[in-house]
Design a protein around this nucleic acid. Structure first.
Lengths: 254, 254
DNA sequence: GCGCTTATCGTCAGGGAGACGACTATGATC
DNA sequence: GATCATAGTCGTCTCCCTGACGATAAGCGC
């Protein structure tokens, strides 16, 4: 490392941005907030904010997550019935021109949450919403929910979101992370619908059932059953302790 | 994002640190440099430096890599016979107390390079070396090459190095990245020794040969043969275009 | 040539995944 | 209450990949 003259390095602003994903109505959705000021005023953006003076990056992300969703981040060391959202660092974005005002380096984090009632952003319900990632990323192809013209996300947030979605898609292959999209108790079919929504494919219910119930440590039966999806009552499970799936869940070909 | 008062956010220093890995004499090695000043004066550390005023993070990492090793980073968009090192972002480390002097956020990058002649660090050959990661991470178990007491790396660099090694170990499972450790032309046996060194296991030469030659796009024969490893002449290959191995190379159980 | 080394090809058994048939247990509808 | 639609669950069969390992090939040093 070079000599450490306090005037020898340029000062940066450091922020955390959040890619918060959930599955709603069979679609993978991300949390976006409406920008109230320039630049990109009125555009949708990922939630985020400055890292504080004495705050670690993960803590800053967890704080922002709590402020935006009310969720607390899952502590990886905590026991299984934590119900906190999964939170992990995604990547850091520092293009010198990504913010026109000054040099901002953003440490993006990825959070996976079960389906939540409704976003709350400082009480202003109109400034935060869940939007299908499909719509957010292919803004030219569709129109927003309330008829507004869909426009690209602010800053480089489309890129960050795309990276987060790709991370989630690949990570549920070889880890038990898909359970982070489910409530504490869930059925095999609900878990399968998570995979189908995240990957955008249809999976064979019988082979899926064999796979997930046959992988040791992935699911543990909770004893109860439910018919909330209709049809024959389904056994309820919780996430088991296993973090990695070996062999992995295979994503079908395109 | 919060209102943008220039005095509303704390200033950070942003650096890039490099985990440069190579395979030397059947061992996975990392590039370390000796610190010339406090703190951690005299201790080994990962190479790195400040991100410049108008420099993207990846560019800063590529610049540092060139300064330390003479390697240029591989451009993912460039054609295959690039011979540049693989370079990717690894993660960002921003604990408020990771540098005792001030708030420094370090964006760590991972570089994979073929076996190089010798490190050059600004001409000072004594201040940079390749060291087996085994030695660097388990400093209590062994003694450095020239008899010196092995001490932990400076700052949180042991953690960063461990993360980089873990990334490399898992990434060669499902990608063709192992070829980044090989010269432009290499044999199946040389590629196998890369896997063995990175994973620290022994692989069956016959099954390995079947696997890598049977995976479409992984290896393309270059036409020549070599006996530089002794024994029967071996066919020479170059890396094929395929980036992902499907199905992956399976890492044997512990 | 002999032994040593490494490369390469073949064979066989076992496990996992895809394809898909069959059966079960609910709620909804007539 | 019979029927139907909907999910869930269990089985079977085949194919492909992998691990284990025998056998052969083609250099090198002596």
């Amino acid at each position: 490392m070079s000599p450490y003259d306090p005037s020898a390095f340029p000062p940066f602003a450091v922020t955390v941005d959040l890619v918060v994903l959930t599955v709603r109505r069979h679609a993978l959705c991300a949390l976006v907030v409406r920008r109230g000021e320039s630049p990109f005023q009125g555009r949708w953006a990922l939630p985020g904010g400055f890292v504080r003076e004495d705050e670690d990056l993960g803590l800053a992300a967890a704080r922002e997550l709590g402020e935006e969703t009310g969720l607390h981040a899952h502590d990886p060391a905590a026991p299984a019935p934590d119900n906190g959202a999964h939170l992990e660092q995604l990547g850091t974005y520092g293009d010198p021109r990504r913010d026109p005002r000054m040099r901002v380096v953003s440490v993006a984090h990825l959070a996976l949450a079960p389906d939540l009632p409704a976003p709350r952003a400082g009480g202003d319900a109109n400034s935060a919403r869940w939007a299908p990632v499909e719509t957010l990323l292919h803004h030219e192809s569709d129109v927003g929910r309330d008829g507004e013209q869909p426009v690209p996300l602010a800053f480089d947030h489309a890129r960050i979101l795309a990276d987060g979605v790709e991370r989630a898609r690949s990570k549920i292959e070889y880890s038990s992370l898909a359970t982070a999209f489910c409530p504490q108790e869930f059925t095999v079919g609900e878990l399968r619908r998570v995979y189908e929504a995240v990957w955008g494919v249809a999976l064979d219910p019988r082979n899926f059932h064999r796979k997930v119930t046959g992988t040791p440590g992935f699911l543990v039966p909770s004893g109860g059953t439910t018919t909330r999806q209709g049809g024959r009552p389904a056994q309820l499970f919780r996430a088991g302790g296993a973090a990695l799936l070996n062999p992995p869940m295979l994503r079908p070909e395109v």
